[in-house]
Structures are given as structure tokens and as C-alpha cells.
């Protein structure tokens, strides 16, 4: 039933289950896989439990080593190792290393966001990125800890004063995405958000050449 719910309508501007980039897509996929696995395990465990109350059905004496050695340690370890490998594969693909990527600097403070670029004037509280091309966001903060998160594009990373954290993101289609502060940062935390705009290749070139967002029709 939960799977149906996921498919039915978990959209929205900030839903990780309505991904719009490769990173968020692979994690949403991962969630579906884990949800199915976890549902299965829960049913198995609760069934074993229920069988304990049906004296006539179950054998009275099962060796400890079968329950604990093969069951608890054996089966659980195999499942965990498989999951860990899957996790490393997905995670490893999202590291901000290698390949050409545009670098964008994100600076958080109570309660604003500020975005700047290597070869262009900053854009204030709007993050502008190209479609279909990875960007590395360098995230930092000037006062307290904040969190940089565009749920539909990928995972989050903390914005920590004195440190710069890097996050690799990519948008698969043009459009506007909501960005949020994920780490509690005081009374303004709830509305500490920003907009990310993904531009088509042509618009992106014009933007990097200095065109304003208004001129490109994104105000």
C-alpha cells in the first residue's frame, strides 16, 4: 500500500519522491528498493512472532545456532552487505570530483542566501544553473550553521561557518526548483529558502555572458 501511495501523489515543489535530476532520481529509486525490502522483512519477523503463539504449527526445539548464528547473524549480514554495496555505488557516483563542472558559491546567513559565480556577477538569492550539466556548489555560511538542500535535485550538505562543503548537482530539465535551509538556524529557519533556476544551454551561455535573468524571461 505504501508503494501505491508513493506512486499516487507524493509530488510537490520540495518532494524528494518527484526527482528532477540524476542524484535525486537514484536516491528516490533507492528508497523504493529499501521500502520493499523493509516491508518484506517486517512481514517475515511479525509472522515468525505470530507463529510462536501457534503451538501446534511450530517445532518446539530449534537449535540456538540455527536461530542466532544462521538467522540473526547470517541472513542479516548478507542483506546488509548487499545494501551497503548498493549505497556505495549510488553515493560514489555523487561525489564532487572529476569531470567538467561549473562551480557556484552558495553563502548562507540568517536569513538570506547569496549565490556567486566564477565568471559572472552574483545573483543574490537566486541560484542559476545549466540543464543537463553537473554543477559543484561550494556551500558556506557566515553566522550560524545552515543547510543547503534542493530536494528535487539531490541530497543536502551543511553550510558551516569557517568551512566550505561541496555538493554535486544536476538538473535534467529547465525550470524552477525550491531550495531550503535544512539545518535549524533560529526563528527565521522556516522561511529560509531560495529558488534555483535551471537554464537551457542557450540561455545558460547568454547568462554567463552577462545577460540578466529578466532579459532571459526568468524574473
Amino acid at each position: 500500500m505504501a508503494v501505491l501511495l508513493v506512486l499516487a501523489g507524493c509530488g510537490g515543489d520540495v518532494s524528494t519522491l518527484d526527482p528532477a535530476g540524476p542524484s535525486a532520481t537514484s536516491i528516490a529509486m533507492m528508497w523504493s528498493v529499501m521500502l520493499i525490502g523493509a516491508t518484506f522483512i517486517t512481514i517475515v519477523v511479525l509472522s515468525l512472532l505470530a507463529l510462536g503463539f501457534r503451538r501446534s504449527v511450530v517445532p518446539r526445539r530449534i537449535p540456538e545456532s540455527l536461530w542466532l548464528g544462521y538467522g540473526a547473524i547470517g541472513i542479516v549480514s548478507v542483506a546488509l552487505i548487499a545494501l551497503l554495496i548498493y549505497g556505495f555505488l549510488v553515493g560514489g557516483g555523487q561525489r564532487p570530483i572529476g569531470g567538467p563542472a561549473t562551480t557556484i558559491r552558495a553563502t548562507a546567513q540568517q536569513w538570506h542566501w547569496h549565490f556567486s559565480y566564477e565568471a559572472r556577477a552574483p545573483t543574490g538569492a537566486v541560484l542559476v544553473m545549466p540543464v543537463g550539466h553537473p554543477v559543484t556548489v561550494e556551500v558556506t555560511a557566515t553566522d550560524v550553521i545552515h543547510g543547503f538542500w534542493i530536494p528535487r535535485l539531490g541530497g543536502k550538505v551543511d553550510a558551516i561557518p569557517g568551512h566550505v562543503n561541496r555538493l554535486r548537482l544536476q538538473a535534467d530539465r529547465p525550470g524552477r526548483f525550491v531550495g531550503l535551509c535544512a539545518e535549524f538556524c533560529g526563528t527565521g529557519h522556516r522561511d529560509h529558502s531560495f529558488t534555483a533556476i535551471a537554464l537551457s544551454p542557450a540561455d545558460w551561455r547568454a547568462f554567463m555572458d552577462g545577460a540578466s535573468l529578466e532579459a532571459l524571461g526568468h524574473d
Binding site: 542524484s23 536516491i27 533507492m30 528508497w31 549505497g87 553515493g91 541530497g155 543536502k156 535544512a182
Partner: peptide, 19 residues
């Protein structure tokens, strides 16, 4: 416990953390 294992998987944690 099962959602705990999910959260121990790093990429999923990046999405679910602080939610």
C-alpha cells in the same frame, strides 16, 4: 530498526537528514 539501516546508507541519509 529498518529505517535506521536506511538512514545509515549515506546517499539516502543526504535526502532524509533533518526531515
Amino acid at each position: 530498526g529498518l529505517t535506521g539501516v536506511m538512514l545509515a546508507i549515506v546517499p539516502f541519509n543526504w535526502q532524509a537528514h533533518d526531515t
